[in-house]
Each structure stands twice: as structure tokens, then as C-alpha cells.
């Protein structure tokens, strides 16, 4: 019998392959290491990220699901809640103890009940509706609030880039 974290990740992988949610593909990068996943997230329809397919990497701690995984986009992203290096900043990925931004309710934080699927769905909704109060990328937050057109333009350029199209 393998460790509980591994078994849980396997169960989640099975669940995700049997009933994949729309616009989300996720799974371990290699079958040898279940603690690093790759995910592909389709930009939600009706938003400036529509049509894009964004690759991301999830790294799970050894004590998963007691601690949350870390998620990082591996493509270029321009979004108020995504750091310039691709790290995703949403409350579901934060353990209840730490509060990097100081505004999150503990009810939105990580708990073992959450799962990869819920994280990815939250990320999709985050793409659709950025939270401009969290300043993971302050430039993007300001632009999203004050100059939406410019923001949309950059987003569309990123979408084309992820699809391998000339911008």
C-alpha cells in the first residue's frame, strides 16, 4: 500500500480522466512521479482569454491533501492574479495559516476537501473574473481596472501566442 498522498492523487487522476470537466485537462507529467502534474486550461468563453489554451504545472507537497499544491503557468500570462513568473495567487491555494495578501477569508482557503479539479475550476473563473484587489501583478490589475481595452489586447496577444499563431 502506497502512501496516502499518492493514493489520493491517483484517485483524483482517475476521477479526472473518467469525468473530465469542460475545458480542463490535467494529469501527472510522468507516471513515475505523481507529485508533479501538468494541466491545460482553456480560456473561458466570452472573455478576453477565449480560445487560448494555457499550460500550467502543479507541484504537490508530500503531505497532500493536508497542504495545498503550488500552481504555476508555464506560458506567458498577463493577469491581475498571476505573478509575472506564472505563479497563481488565489485563496484556494493558500493554507489557512498564511495570508500573503491579508484579505482572504479562511472559508475560501485550502482544506483537504478541495481537489485538483476545484483548483482548476477556480482558476478558470479567476481568468474570467480577475480580482483586482489582490495585487499579484499590480500592472495588470491597474490596467484591467483603468484601461480595459489595452488589457484585452495583451490578453489576445497571449492567446495567439499559446496557440502558436503569429501575433
Amino acid at each position: 500500500m502506497a502512501g496516502s498522498a499518492l493514493r489520493r492523487l491517483m484517485a483524483e487522476y482517475r476521477q479526472l480522466t473518467l469525468n473530465p470537466p469542460e475545458g480542463i485537462v490535467a494529469g501527472p507529467i510522468s507516471e513515475d512521479n505523481f507529485f508533479e502534474w501538468e494541466a491545460l486550461i482553456a480560456g473561458p468563453e466570452g472573455t478576453c482569454f477565449e480560445g487560448g489554451v494555457f499550460p500550467a504545472k502543479l507541484v504537490f507537497p508530500p503531505d497532500y491533501p493536508l497542504s495545498p499544491p503550488k500552481m504555476k503557468f508555464t506560458c506567458e500570462m498577463f493577469h491581475p492574479n498571476i505573478f509575472a513568473d506564472g505563479r497563481v495567487c488565489i485563496s484556494i491555494l493558500h493554507a489557512p495559516g498564511d495570508d500573503p495578501m491579508g484579505y482572504e477569508l479562511s472559508a475560501e482557503r485550502w482544506s483537504p476537501v478541495q481537489s485538483v479539479e476545484k483548483i482548476l475550476l477556480s482558476v478558470v473563473s479567476m481568468l474570467a473574473e480577475p480580482n483586482d484587489e489582490s495585487g499579484a501583478n499590480v500592472d495588470a490589475a491597474i490596467m484591467w481596472r483603468d484601461n480595459r481595452e489595452e488589457f484585452n489586447k495583451i490578453a489576445r496577444r497571449i492567446v495567439r501566442k499559446t496557440l502558436g499563431l503569429p501575433s
Binding site: 502512501g3 498522498a5 499518492l6 491517483m10 507516471e31 513515475d32 512521479n33 505523481f34 507529485f35 508530500p62
Partner: peptide, 9 residues
Amino acid sequence: VDYMERSPV
């Protein structure tokens, strides 16, 4: 040894 717990095989 730490990896043991995380390895499937």
C-alpha cells in the same frame, strides 16, 4: 527513503 512514500512502484 522520503521518496518511497511518493513513488507508485
